[in-house]
Design a protein around this nucleic acid. Structure first.
Ligand code: SF4
Ligand code: SF4
Lengths: 133, 133
DNA sequence: CAATCAAAGACTTTATTTGCCCATGATAAC
DNA sequence: GTTATCATGGGCAAATAAAGTCTTTGATTG
């Protein structure tokens, strides 16, 4: 029960892209260096973000990644789901019907966390961070 | 990022012990059968609960497990922490100081979930379940 | 066409979880 | 006291998941 490193990398990447000059293309190498992770591994994570429609990529020389138009609305939860999937944190094999109280409690607990993360937009965090500089 | 099966087993066991006649000793075999898990594995989980002070065990013939005196106060969160540990769900290698906004958001999110789970006592859930019978 | 860069698939390594086996120790019944 | 029962503990094996590597392909720039 831990967030994966992949999620960590995705959050940092998104935040970095949100702070950098808009529409500027950033290569995977530069992103990987900052986070001390191998470019090939980070590449896979970035591809997930592309498929989730959060960033777009440009191949070829001077290519790289940048945020998509709707990026202001992207939340922490969006990023986490893009990497970790949408499955529930709690699952049981013997499914005794939908009115199981244990499941209800566990699912509700997860939703408490998700409700908060859904309201944390990277755009707002980026604003706060640039204000500090 | 998922709750382990061990946590699942622990929750079910605690709830079962809360529904059963008080002070009655239940052996690991009976607990394991209900949950379709091997007794040997469940045994290790139960030992964790014993060490966490939530249940007590009696060796020898007719031995088994039962809840401890303060069991009415035990919450879902207590059980989860007993099994999964107390470490934060989000951790980064490069620790850039305690005022990192990413960490703050992730830790706060986790606390939202924990706040809810802390208020879900197994005693109250047991009450509701016996009311249904 | 040559250099650069993302995408994708196959693969290896590492870590964690889950589960089993067996020896040990405690307790009750006989 | 001997035997049956039951928890505890260590070590080990299998299964699963996470993390990371390598290599090929294909797109774009210049
Ligand atoms: S009691 Fe609820 S959580 Fe447990 S196995 Fe049945 S449905 Fe799943
Ligand atoms: S920015 Fe925050 S979360 Fe990221 S590595 Fe630094 S301290 Fe950790």
């Amino acid at each position: 029960m831990k967030f994966s490193k992949a999620t960590n990398y995705a959050l940092h990447t998104m935040l970095f892209l949100a702070v950098v000059p808009p529409n500027k293309l950033i290569g995977v190498q530069q992103l990987a260096e900052r986070q001390e992770v191998s470019p090939t591994y980070l590449s896979k994570i970035l591809t997930k973000l592309v498929k989730a429609g959060m960033i777009e990529s440009t191949s070829g020389a001077n290519g790289g990644y940048r945020l998509k138009r709707n990026w202001e609305e992207i939340s922490f939860l969006d990023i986490i789901h893009a990497i970790e999937g949408n499955a529930s944190l709690f699952e049981c094999d013997l499914n005794h019907g939908q009115d199981c109280m244990i499941q209800k409690i566990m699912v509700t607990a997860e939703e408490k966390m998700e409700d908060y993360l859904r309201n944390q937009k990277i755009s707002e965090l980026a604003k706060k961070m640039t204000a500090v500089l």
